[in-house]
Nucleic acid binder design. Structure first.
Ligand SMILES: NC(=O)c1ccc[n+]([C@@H]2O[C@H](COP(=O)([O-])OP(=O)(O)OC[C@H]3O[C@@H](n4cnc5c(N)ncnc54)[C@H](O)[C@@H]3O)[C@@H](O)[C@H]2O)c1
Ligand SMILES: NC(=O)c1ccc[n+]([C@@H]2O[C@H](COP(=O)([O-])OP(=O)(O)OC[C@H]3O[C@@H](n4cnc5c(N)ncnc54)[C@H](O)[C@@H]3O)[C@@H](O)[C@H]2O)c1
Lengths: 204, 204
DNA sequence: GTGCGCTTGTGAAACGAATCACGATGCCCA
DNA sequence: TGGGCATCGTGATTCGTTTCACAAGCGCAC
């Protein structure tokens, strides 16, 4: 499946979930308008799911949700760990959107001894030693990294060693990882700077 | 300048800043390796800056930083506002990475009357009425949106009315905006779901 | 100075993705 | 039962981006 398609599937899922239960069926045209893409693009994307739209009618909304979830590997909840429980890490820990999206935060970890044991959203912050054990015990494959940039590589190496295969990295640091490990970077500064470019060229 | 290039410029800037002051010059090859892209791609990107690499030597690191900053419109600090000071909004407010990246948080705003006046990182949370005034007074063009998804559209409309032209939206909601307004979406669930796809197809 | 090695800048080619355009097909209603 | 309408699925096309490949240029060493 093309990379570009994969990156749109969550968008479609979000759109379908956001529209009321009133609609039992959606056309590619309607979905395209909501999602802000071209309708032929939607149809081509959905065709990769081996989906079964009905000509003249559209797609069955609920069935499509199921297919999207299956394609995205969201049939079971993925256990995830959060490393670095500072400002951002605690915000994520408190976030209520994980479960409905298909994820389950099983633990929060920090290197700062003074934080260990502190309660955050029903969890207690654990040590980095426990992290390694928990990953192996629960067969965790996904990690969210919210340590300072300086510690990110070191922590990432440890995560990879422990068996993590997917990392969502919020630290503004480029991780060197084996290519068996998939990483996505979320960078606030980058996003703002891109906006800044368009803002600046607009007035120029 | 191609969209794809614009989205890489902040990356180059980050790489150049991260490498020590020891290197006075960088070749496209070195930068490409650090940034994880093809070196021809780097050269083509930088050529849009009207840049002046020196054949046989490379690019002057500091000069290149200056050029990147200028291209991105980062010569002055942009004033930005944060709307919705909950878990995520407060984390962002406490973030120390804005200033070095070229941005200046001038105010935090929330609709919840019980929060107004609360101190967060040297600011006091202000009301939505003040938001509109502040935007006009300080000629603010960029806003960070961290309200619940349900309130996002309504708040966005208000921001647009007040003169905001760029929105960084953390709420999992697709905003309908006039095409004079640029928006970038940061969606945690989407990112995790993309990782989930690759995780799932790996084992399948 | 002359030559050699390194690195840029860029046309050309390859690739991937978005869009177009339309035949095929199922549904609904007369 | 058949005709019209809406919509899908998809080949063909266009577009944007990445990569290749190499001539041109600069600096340094001798
Ligand atoms: N706060 C934000 O809004 C924001 C926004 C964008 C990016 N970021 C990035 O996210 C990361 C976290 O930001 P923050 O504001 O939460 O910082 P923070 O300093 O509040 O939190 C970092 C946490 O990581 C822990 N830590 C440090 N070294 C560690 C290690 N080796 N192993 C495990 N834990 C370790 C610290 O004890 C601390 O609790 C930073 O890289 C920052 O640049 C933050
Ligand atoms: N917390 C996270 O880690 C996280 C991660 C990803 C996405 N998000 C998204 O970011 C947004 C904020 O998340 P959060 O966890 O901080 O939520 P939160 O409930 O803690 O904070 C939301 C804040 O917005 C304020 N608010 C509500 N309606 C408003 C309005 N009309 N105008 C102005 N302010 C208003 C609330 O008073 C509250 O302070 C949500 O959309 C959430 O889905 C959060």
């Amino acid at each position: 499946m093309p990379k570009a398609t994969v990156e749109r599937l969550p968008l479609y899922l979000q759109c379908l979930q956001a529209m009321g239960d009133s609609e039992t069926t959606v056309s590619s045209d309607v979905l395209a308008n909501i999602a802000g893409v071209n309708s032929a693009n939607v149809r081509k994307d959905l065709s990769y799911l081996g989906s079964h739209g009905v000509r003249g009618v559209g797609y069955d909304r609920l069935e499509l949700c199921v297919q999207l979830r299956r394609a995205l590997g969201l049939t079971d909840k993925w256990p995830v760990v959060i490393i670095g429980v500072g400002n951002l890490g605690s915000a994520l820990a408190n976030y209520q959107g994980f479960d409905p999206s298909g994820f389950n935060v099983i633990g929060l970890y920090d290197a700062d001894p003074s934080k260990i044991g502190d309660p955050v959203d029903g969890h207690r912050i654990k040590s980095m030693e426990e992290l390694e054990l928990d990953i192996k015990e629960h067969d965790v494959q996904m990690a969210i990294l919210t340590t300072p940039a300086g510690a990110a590589q070191e922590v990432a190496d440890m995560l990879v060693g422990a068996g993590i295969l997917s990392i969502l990295n919020f630290a503004p640091a480029l991780l060197k990882l084996p290519d068996t490990v998939k990483c996505r970077q979320v960078d606030l500064a980058t996003e703002l700077q891109i906006l800044s470019y368009y803002q600046a060229t607009r007035t120029a």
